[in-house]
Simulated assay, not measured.
Amino acid sequence: MKIRFAVIDDAAFLRELIKNMMSNAGHLCVGEAENGNDGIRLVDSVLPDLVFLDMVMPLRNGLETARAIKEAHPDIQIIGCSTIDNDAMIEKAHEAGFDAYITKPFTKENLLLVVSKVLPQLGESTHGRG
């Protein structure tokens, strides 16, 4: 089965890049949002297996968004995608509920490697929808 994923990032080109990389690997994008508030509503409505989440966004940043998603849906995996690459921020991300963190720019191989680490059953939908 395909991984059902959502992308929350204020940069449209990055949302498109992640969607293309994941779709080309056989997975299904179930939605995208450009800020944390819209992202939380999206996740609540489509219940993806995996969320790609930017750290710096308008209205609600990645840390706040991750906390809200994990509080409501602790089984949804979150991968942070950011240009911020310092240990203190990565630690804060994990404390907020991120399951993994990848720095921009990244390759398709790097992205899929991180996905396989947070969803080792690669391809199994935890929500029973394919």
Rank of each mutant, 00 (worst) to 15 (best):
M55P: 02
N61Y: 07
V51Y: 02
I76V: 14
I40L: 10
R60S: 07
N61K: 10
D75R: 15
F52S: 05
L59R: 10
V46W: 01
N61L: 11
V56N: 05
V56Y: 00
P48H: 02
P48W: 00
L50P: 11
T83R: 11
R41C: 02
D54C: 07
A68D: 12
D49M: 08
D38Q: 07
E71F: 01
L53M: 06
P74F: 12
D75Y: 13
H73R: 15
S82D: 04
V46K: 00
E71P: 00
P74R: 15
D44N: 15
D85R: 11
V46S: 11
L47R: 06
Q77M: 07
G39Q: 04
I40G: 00
S82T: 15
Q77I: 09
E71Y: 01
D49K: 09
I84P: 01
F52I: 06
T65C: 08
S45Q: 03
E64A: 06
D44H: 09
M57R: 11
T65L: 09
E64T: 09
K70F: 05
E64C: 05
M55S: 09
A68Y: 01
D38V: 03
N61M: 11
M55E: 03
C81H: 06
D85K: 12
M57E: 14
D38I: 02
V51G: 14
V51F: 03
L47A: 14
L50D: 06
G80D: 08
I69V: 15
